[in-house]
Simulated assay, not measured.
Amino acid sequence: MSVVYTLLIGIFMLAGLTAQAQTSQQKSIKYKSISPATDHYKIISIGNPIAKGGELESIVFPEKEFRRGAYLKMRTVYLDMPVNTFKIKPYPANSSEQTRQELDFLLELQQKRTAADAALTDTMAIVYYDPYTVNPNEADYSRNVNSLFYVGRNLGPWFTPQQLPVTSRVLQNVIQDATFYFFSLKAQFNRARPYHLEPALQNLEAPGHASYPSGHSSASHVHAYLLSHLLPAYKDAFLANAYDMAFSREIRGVHYPSDSEAGREFAEQFVTQLLKNKKFKADLEAMKAEIHKAMAANKLSSVN
């Protein structure tokens, strides 16, 4: 562990801030053995985000590697507002103290991750929804639509697109909207991936789009906040699944912790906007009725 990161932990604990929030380890279900026994997002975020200067500041996500331009032209279903409605602060500069701390943290994760950790992140890397894969005859359709039910999977084997077709339709619309907005933010910020700045990082994949905010974190937290609105009794499980999804991307060396946090912040704002939308609220009521009916059939509490 770096000396700077160790000192930051000491400062954080002396300030008494760790008592006010769950640690990363407590947030996790699948990655307790590798998640820090602190809230690593809060610790790293107190680093100085200002540029020190030098060659690092010229590095952005390479234009030739960007492979998701179609998402930037996609039509939305519910929300129609400027991208800057979502107030995501600029990412810390490439040459900043904070980015260096983030890269050091990712290098520590790389040292700690086991083959089993890496294999688990492989399974989570393919949990995402592509709004352009909508034909049931397509080979990737099943993976695609089932991804919408990952965060809520703890509810039981009945929580599937096959048993909840209304919920599936609404979630497809929601994530189509979210994808347009978080990819638009990615294109605006155009942040380089961690492995573009740190050659010692052994990233487990090379996504074809910029880093900030994290798409996996954004989408999984949208699911978590939306399902928590419907089923607050299960909120902790939903948020734990979203945490693990975001953290898996850090373990893979493809996202900085600040990418994960920006995705969570985007999701919180996005769901807030959704809940104001008249068309969405009508669909949400239909989704809610379907879920509560299924829960009653499975003799589960649907506290709301």
Rank of each mutant, 00 (worst) to 15 (best):
215 G>K: 07
213 P>D: 00
32 K>R: 14
100 R>E: 04
136 P>F: 01
251 I>A: 09
270 F>S: 09
61 F>Y: 10
21 A>F: 15
198 E>K: 13
146 N>C: 10
219 A>I: 09
73 K>Q: 14
117 D>M: 11
34 I>G: 07
56 L>V: 07
243 Y>F: 15
11 I>S: 13
77 V>L: 06
98 Q>T: 07
85 T>N: 01
121 T>W: 05
176 Q>S: 02
161 P>A: 06
244 D>N: 01
115 A>W: 02
67 R>Y: 03
260 S>W: 00
144 N>V: 10
78 Y>I: 05
302 S>K: 07
149 F>W: 09
220 S>R: 05
236 D>Y: 08
82 P>C: 02
119 A>Y: 01
230 L>C: 10
29 I>K: 10
77 V>A: 07
57 E>F: 02
98 Q>E: 11
120 L>M: 12
57 E>Y: 05
76 T>R: 04
231 L>Y: 05
142 S>T: 12
61 F>D: 02
246 A>R: 01
213 P>F: 00
223 H>N: 15
59 I>A: 04
165 P>L: 08
167 T>W: 06
291 I>L: 13
9 I>A: 12
135 N>D: 11
199 P>N: 04
237 A>S: 12
278 K>D: 15
63 E>I: 13
300 L>G: 03
32 K>C: 08
241 N>E: 12
136 P>H: 01
174 V>P: 06
172 Q>R: 07
304 N>M: 14
289 A>G: 06
91 Y>G: 00
280 F>E: 14
108 E>P: 12
132 Y>V: 11
202 Q>F: 09
239 L>T: 03
64 K>L: 08
91 Y>Q: 00
283 D>Q: 09
1 M>K: 04
22 Q>T: 11
223 H>W: 13
16 G>V: 06
121 T>L: 02
150 Y>Q: 14
192 A>Y: 05
254 V>I: 11
304 N>E: 14
67 R>G: 03
174 V>W: 05
49 P>D: 05
295 M>Q: 08
92 P>Q: 10
82 P>R: 01
242 A>V: 09
193 R>T: 12
16 G>P: 03
246 A>L: 05
38 T>N: 09
23 T>Q: 05
74 M>E: 08
221 H>C: 00
80 D>P: 12
162 Q>V: 11
279 K>I: 13
56 L>N: 04
164 L>A: 14
23 T>D: 07
194 P>E: 10
215 G>L: 01
97 E>P: 13
202 Q>P: 08
57 E>K: 06
278 K>R: 15
152 G>M: 04
150 Y>N: 13
153 R>L: 04
110 Q>S: 03
62 P>A: 00
2 S>G: 04
205 E>D: 13
47 G>E: 05
221 H>E: 00
91 Y>H: 04
300 L>P: 03
221 H>N: 02
185 L>P: 05
91 Y>A: 01
19 A>G: 07
